[in-house]
Computed example of a mutant assay.
Amino acid sequence: MLPRMEILTLDLPGIRKIASGKVREIFDLGEHLLLVATDRISAFDCILPNPIPHKGAVLTSISAFWFQRFGFVENHVVATEVADFPAALQPYAAQLARRAMVVKKAKPLPVECVVRGYLAGSGWKEYQASQTICGIKLPAGLRQAEKLPGTIFTPSTKAESGHDMNINWDECRRLVGDDVAEQVRTLSIRIYEEGRAYAAERGIIVADTKFEFGLLDDRVILIDECLTPDSSRFWPADQYALGISPPSFDKQFVRDYLETLTWDKTPPAPALPADVVHKTSEKYLEAYSRLTGRALAGV
């Protein structure tokens, strides 16, 4: 068994790192890319100083699970097992195990594909103000956390820093073209609805999620992550209730703690107490075990 380690940042001598996001480190392997999910966690657009044990492994393993399940959409995965990685990566097996995948190089589309099935988060705030979500008119009288009459596609633009900006359907079509826009909307809704149905059988409500797509030889493929606790709002079905923001398997637990502080939500972010770190790690691990029916390897 490989030793457990928490990783906040990662450099691989001899392997060129080309980007470092809120969670992932991206390395150029020539023909392919290496995506490594660290144990970083962010809230209010700030990266916190504490690693969350097993978080990176959970994110990569859940994405790999869904990528394999959704055979109707091409994805970017080349390899998820370290033993199948190029020889140049083998010296770093301990750092990469369970948290990394080798992927195809695709040109990311300039939109985030957000899909909503329940009234929550920023959607709930907008609905209260205008009875719409991203300009889509909804029936009057809906309550917080209520299931929407139908799944809606509410794209946004990607932001290098800060919050993504919601856009309407016409702007999405302008940015990526009519044909690609239709493809990503259709695929996003299908992936979400099939994933939601599967998760419901395992006691999880997937309230909303976001996907990223890219172009590879002019084909639309699914990239980045898929239906993880970082990209989705997961609610335990046995604690679901209307009129409140249900507890979740994502980092809402961290946000709730930070809201109790006098922190002004600008860097540097405060350190998390040990009990919050532990509880957050448990929530990520439970999401994985519920979805896959097994414990995360090595934990």
Score class of each variant (00 low, 15 high):
P139T: 02
G141F: 08
E286Q: 13
P110L: 01
A200Y: 12
K147R: 15
K17H: 09
A140I: 10
G14D: 11
G30R: 08
V220R: 05
G121A: 11
Y240A: 06
P53F: 04
D84H: 13
D39E: 08
A297E: 14
F85N: 00
G214Q: 04
M1N: 13
Q131G: 07
Q183W: 00
D179H: 13
A241K: 13
V276G: 03
E282S: 15
T132N: 08
S248T: 14
Y198P: 10
I15E: 05
A100R: 05
D275E: 12
D178H: 14
S231F: 03
E6K: 14
D164C: 06
V77T: 08
Y284S: 10
D179Y: 13
C134H: 11
R219W: 04
C226A: 12
M1I: 12
E286F: 06
F72L: 12
D238M: 05
V114Y: 07
E201I: 08
R116A: 12
F211Q: 06
A87W: 04
T292P: 10
L89G: 01
G298C: 11
P246M: 03
G21Y: 02
D208L: 05
V111A: 07
G195E: 08
G71S: 14
R16L: 15
I26F: 05
I167M: 00
I133M: 10
G71V: 09
A87S: 12
D250H: 03
S232I: 02
I15G: 05
F67P: 00
L96D: 04
P108K: 07
